[in-house]
Write a protein that binds this DNA or RNA. Structure first.
Lengths: 208, 208
DNA sequence: TGGGCATCCGAACGATCGTTCGGAACGTAA
DNA sequence: TTACGTTCCGAACGATCGTTCGGATGCCCA
């Protein structure tokens, strides 16, 4: 037995690969990049995975199973429609912020898999989207499919601009998104709780 | 002079390249793909552009100037904050639907340029985002930056799921997004106008 | 008739890609 | 000690990449 057992070394490899894929994009990263980032030799990588695409598949599959399981749990714990949607948003954003590279790869490299691996991930994606769409349908608002995809866009897009260690905490971000999606940006927020962590708790209520 | 003047042949090339980039992704498409799609020979492409990256740059630059100009115009034509935001959304979605390949490339390949070309496109992007953020700030709702990026995500994400020739017209899509962003998905929409195109052109005011 | 420019191409170049091959180093079991 | 499976690597393979080179063709003007 070497320093690390097989499974843990594989986890390390997948984690390093997720970071590089997120940073440079799947097609633009080379196996030599992954060799450098993982500490394995170029050939050594192939002891753990069959090839580059399997690496991407494993990252996406593991990540998806995790978000889905967590989302299912928090949604089930809420009986009421608005609370279920809010819980989904909070969980999705929290998970996203805690697994930025993997979630970015999941969002940005959705078309980079092929064949059966592609089909399997697409199916997971459909199930996850349905979970949210079903919650939204109970709101009896606009077209649930359109609204759900709109909300996914709002949330998934954060990989292009949001930094979890910046001025806006993941919790504050989720609250803003939940408020905007449920009640709209033209409505004042009920409590102070803007997006800034430190500053004065600027009150949101409109003047007139 | 051949059948087509230089500029028009270049337009054709850029249009073909946008379609292929949108379909396969920038890094995954080869110059030979572009040769096939444009009807030019592999070497012939280099008579019109300096290389693959310039192709991507020209697509993004031209597209961005167009959306920005149009958005500026429709925003300026509206005096009131809510109407300005709504106008921005309608224009962005309409333009997106009418220029799907280019806008997908603009959204999805935001990190594929390098050096000066990258810097220039990023600056255009900042200006465009500020235009929307300024409109949103006047709503006096949640953090304008967060809300603006959230709205951009909602709108730009459509390249992953929306087909302009499907059951939901671009106008209906824009109306749903405008309603959700401004008033929330938990609020009922004022008129029927769910997702059908032929309805009355306007449905602004809340019910109460 | 001939020079010059614009348009466009077939063929090839060097670089780099994902992957593979043959084996080294090590621990364990007999 | 030998035998063997696991872990891992240096070196190389064939394929393909973006790009370039040296023209070929046709049009314009003199």
């Amino acid at each position: 037995m070497p320093i690390l057992p097989f499974d843990e070394r594989l986890d390390q490899l997948l984690s390093a690969a997720a970071r590089v894929f997120a940073d440079k994009g799947y097609h633009a990263t080379t196996m030599r990049d992954l060799s450098r980032a993982s500490g394995l030799s170029l050939a050594g990588i192939y002891h753990y995975v069959a090839g580059k695409e399997e690496l991407l598949y494993l990252i996406q599959h593991r990540c998806f199973e995790q978000v889905f399981e967590g989302a299912q749990a928090v949604v089930d714990s809420q009986p009421e429609a608005v609370a279920r949607v809010r819980a989904f948003i909070r969980h999705h954003i929290a998970f996203f912020a805690a697994h930025m590279p993997e979630m970015k790869v999941l969002s940005h490299e959705a078309d980079s898999l092929t064949g059966e691996r592609d089909a399997e991930i697409r199916q997971l994606k459909r199930r996850y989207a349905s979970l949210l769409a079903d919650c939204i349908e109970a709101l009896e608002g606009p077209d649930p499919r359109v609204a759900a995809y709109g909300l996914f866009g709002m949330m998934n897009w954060i990989y292009t601009w949001y930094r979890p260690d910046g001025r806006v905490s993941p919790e504050a971000l989720a609250d803003v998104f939940a408020h905007v999606f449920l009640h709209g940006a033209a409505e004042p927020r009920p409590r102070a709780a803007a997006a800034n962590a430190g500053g004065p708790p600027d009150d949101q209520r409109r003047s007139g």
